[in-house]
Write a protein that binds this DNA or RNA. Structure first.
Length: 155
DNA sequence: GCCAACGTTGGC
DNA sequence: GCCAACGTTGGC
């Protein structure tokens, strides 16, 4: 059963344009247990990912990716030079995992946070809840359809 | 740049 | 196992 997700990223660090150029990327650097568990335990190949741009003037959903490989150990945790290095992680017992995602499309109409806030069907989304900082959150099928329809794509 | 909210750490 | 201190996130 295909699931739907929202991934946050700062576009200056890694935006949807980077993914478009690279075609695929391992979603490394997530250092939050809840987000890790979503990737490691709940995601399957083919799951739909909304690519959300955060920490900019107009935040919002820029487009769609999909999960292209199941979670594996995040290699940056083993690299002392990486900002994501985790000295407590070992290759036998990795702490951090990430899936690979593949570019699908950019929305014709960027779906801004403001639009999300103004859409009565999207009020339950995790990113609207006060204080929520989780960088990976599940999206319901209805929310998925609402956003896809409103952003210039035909199903 | 501010700051509220949150997750993690580490001393006890 | 508690909880104060700290660092980070991310909208504004």
């Amino acid at each position: 059963m295909k699931k739907h997700w929202l991934f946050k990223s700062e576009p200056e660090t890694y935006g949807i344009n980077h993914l478009q150029q690279n075609c695929t990327t391992w979603w490394s650097g997530v250092r939050n247990y809840q987000a890790r568990n979503f990737m490691r335990d709940d995601m399957s190949i083919g799951d739909i990912v909304f690519f959300y741009h955060s920490n900019i003037k107009t935040p919002g959903i820029a487009g769609i990716a999909r999960v292209s490989k199941m979670a594996e150990a995040d290699l940056t945790q083993f690299d002392p030079k990486s900002e994501y290095y985790d000295p407590k992680a070992t290759k036998d017992e990795p702490r951090w995992f990430c899936v690979e995602v593949a570019f699908v499309e950019k929305f014709k109409n960027f779906y801004s946070l403001e639009k999300i806030k103004n859409n009565p069907h999207l009020q339950k989304m995790r990113i609207l809840q006060k204080g929520n900082r989780l960088s990976i959150t599940p999206i319901s099928k209805k929310e998925y359809q609402t956003i896809v329809q409103a952003s210039g794509k035909t199903l």
